Every structure is written in structure tokens, then in C-alpha cells.
Computed example of a mutant assay.
Amino acid sequence: MTGKLDAAFGFHETALRLRSERQGVLASNIANADTPNYKARDFDFARALQQATGSADPAAAAATPAPALARTAPAHIATGAAGTLVAGNAPLLYRTGTQGGVDGNSVDMEVERNAFTDNAVRYEASVTLINTQIKNMLTAIQG
């Protein structure tokens, strides 16, 4: 029974985890809007979701391998296959700004606010969808 529930909700769990991680990245960009030489970061949500669910094209994944980090001392923290990966093993990329700042900061507050709001709305929509599915299952069980 738990296998069927995992199959039913596994995709949504992965999507929510990635949305949450993206929200943190976008919040970091907003928080560092006035930090000199800060470069805005983001990741391709669709690619991360495909890689996390195993539906990514293996040929495309092999064409763009993630950069690996070497541990040169035993005290270094292990990073796994790559150092700047999000939950879906998609690389955390630098966002190219439309207009560069004098201080080298690439955060565009309008872009960041729009991305933050869009991500939050999609997160809430996913939670609402999951709640609806659970209510439907309870209705089917209880009769």
C-alpha cells in the first residue's frame, strides 16, 4: 500500500522540495541585492525536476556534465559528484542581468520579485493539488 502512495505522491514531493529550494535561492538573491559583486543565482526548475524524477534524456544529461570538485585535504567537506547542485542534481547557475550595476551586483529586484512570487504561487498550487488528492482518497475510503 505504501508503494502505491509513494508512487502517487512521489512526483509532488519532489516538485515541492525543488520549489522550496528555489525559493531559498531567490530569497538569497533578494537579501543580497545591495551586496557589492554579488551574482544572482537560479536553476532551471524543469530540468531539475526531470533529473530528480528520472525522466531526463540521458543523452542530454551526458552532454552537459556537472563539474566535479576534488577534495585536496581530509578536512574538506565532501560534496558528492559536484559542488553546486540543487536537489534534482541540476546545476545552480548565475543569472545574467539585463543591466549591470556599478558595484558589480547582478540582482535585478523586479526579476527577483517576479520569480519569487511566481515560485510561491506554484508552490501553493502544488500543496492545494496534493490536499485535493488526499481528500479524494479519504472520500473513496470512507464511502
Rank of each mutant, 00 (worst) to 15 (best):
V107S: 08
A15K: 08
T132K: 11
T98K: 15
N114G: 10
R95L: 06
Q23Y: 02
D108M: 12
A82S: 09
D57Y: 06
A62R: 02
D34I: 01
K39Y: 12
S106A: 09
L69W: 10
Y123G: 02
R113W: 00
A70N: 07
Q99G: 03
E112T: 00
Q133R: 12
T98C: 07
G104C: 05
T84P: 04
Q51M: 07
R47I: 02
Q23M: 09
Q133L: 14
R71F: 14
Q133N: 14
A81P: 00
R122W: 15
Y94I: 05
A27C: 09
D57T: 05
H76T: 12
E21S: 11
D108P: 01
A56M: 09
A120L: 05
R122I: 14
G101M: 15
A31G: 12
T53K: 05
R113P: 01
A82Q: 01
E112Q: 03
V111F: 01
A115D: 03
A90V: 01
S20M: 02
A87M: 06
A66Q: 06
T117S: 08
Y38R: 08
N29T: 04
A56T: 00
R17P: 02
N29W: 05
G24Y: 10
R122V: 15
D57V: 04
M109F: 03
V25K: 10
A15R: 11
N89T: 11
G101E: 12
T72S: 06
N29L: 07
G88Q: 01
T128Q: 11
D103Y: 02
L85H: 00
A15G: 03
G83S: 08
A33T: 06
R41W: 06
V25S: 04
N131D: 12
A31K: 09
T79Q: 12
T96Q: 10
E21F: 09
G100C: 03
A125N: 04
T79A: 10
S126D: 15
R95K: 10
A63P: 01
T72Y: 12
A59L: 04
L26T: 04
G54L: 10
R122Y: 15
L49W: 01
A87D: 05
E110Y: 13
G54Y: 15
E21W: 10
E21G: 14
H76R: 04
A40S: 15
A78W: 13
I77C: 07
F43I: 04
F45G: 09
V107R: 02
A61Y: 00
N37F: 11
F43M: 06
Q50N: 15
R17N: 13
L92S: 04
S20T: 11
P67E: 15
T98V: 08
T128P: 07
E124G: 04
F116Y: 06
Y38S: 02
A56F: 03
A73C: 03
N131R: 08
D103I: 03
T84L: 13
E110A: 10
A59Y: 00
T64H: 08
L69Q: 09
V102N: 10
G100P: 02
R41L: 15
G104L: 09
S126A: 10
F116Q: 05
R95V: 15
N119Q: 02
G54A: 12
G88C: 01
P36V: 02
L93S: 07
T84V: 14
A59H: 02
A125W: 11
